[in-house]
């Protein structure tokens, strides 16, 4: 190596000092450093190199450090466990209060989305505990929201019955109370029932019309397509974070 030559940090070949860019790889020439950015990145990406792991992280188990094979395995174990738990619940005589597959599909889909979301959070490299907490918080929020909506409706629905169960000392008052509670009860019953019947009928008919030709049993197409679309969206989002966009103008 003569005095008018330098080592390129990128390709490690000798190139003339007077040049701004490397003659071999075309990268910008900077003073040579044995710990160039490329080398440091290579070292960090080596999972078996414990030297590059910060001292506070050594000995700490982190899910994101696992190889993809273990993540996939963990995913299948979770899915299989959920499936087996559901199977055993059914075997012991519990049946969902459903007579259509629609709600079953929605339930499975939501459950699966939560699992995929958590697994994906690990794969994306975010902190698993935070992601899990966020997922659980979201789930808790949904349950809370449903409770806020459903409990008042239930209370209103059951209130006339509760009022009607009170005993009055006078038979005339009792009869009057009964009539009032019956009237409220009937009105509310009719009102709520008609709303739900209307919504239910609309959903049912639109659902049946949309897929009249498809038999529900089989290699469930909607679940498959739903999963395919969700996973594709995740992949596209990952590309969105890493892809470079440019317009080449000649």
């Amino acid at each position: 190596m003569s005095e008018d030559e330098v080592i390129c940090n990128n390709c490690r070949k000798l190139t003339k000092k007077s040049h701004k860019y490397c003659m071999h790889c075309g990268s910008l020439l900077t003073p040579y450093s044995p710990f160039s950015s490329r080398e440091t990145q290579e070292n960090l990406s080596d999972p078996f190199d414990t030297q590059s792991i910060p001292s506070d992280k050594i000995g700490k188990f982190r899910l994101r450090d696992l190889s993809p094979a273990y993540k996939v395995l963990a995913f299948f174990i979770i899915v299989a466990l959920v499936d087996f738990v559901a199977s055993f619940i059914f075997m012991f005589g519990y049946h969902l209060p459903l007579n259509t597959y629609f709600m079953l599909f929605v339930g499975f889909y939501i459950l699966f989305m939560i699992i995929v979301g958590l697994i994906w959070a690990v794969a994306a490299g975010s902190d698993f505990t935070h992601a899990a907490l966020k997922g659980c918080a979201a789930l808790f929020g949904i349950i809370l929201l449903l409770a806020i909506i459903i409990i008042p409706i239930y209370v209103i629905y059951a209130l006339p019955g509760i009022v009607g169960s009170f005993s009055f000392s006078s038979p005339a008052l009792e009869e009057l109370g009964q009539k009032i509670t019956d009237a409220i009860s009937n009105a509310l019953n009719n009102f709520i029932e008609s709303i739900f019947r209307e919504i239910g009928n609309n959903i049912k008919t639109s659902w049946e019309n949309a897929f009249a030709d498809v038999e529900v049993p089989g290699f469930e197409p909607f679940l498959f397509l739903g999963l395919f679309i969700s996973l594709s969206i995740f992949i596209i989002y990952k590309y969105h974070l890493t892809i470079k966009k440019n317009r080449i103008n000649n």
């Binding site: 995913f75 299989a80 499936d83 597959y101 079953l104 290699f219 469930e220 679940l223 395919f228 996973l231």
Partner: peptide, 24 residues
């Protein structure tokens, strides 16, 4: 002896998950 409806749902869930992941 496992009821058809039950085992059908259970297996479709598993196979759809595995199938979709496999293809993706």
């Amino acid at each position: 002896g496992i009821p058809f409806e039950f085992i059908h749902e259970s297996l479709f869930f598993l196979s759809a998950v595995i199938g979709a992941l496999f293809v993706v």
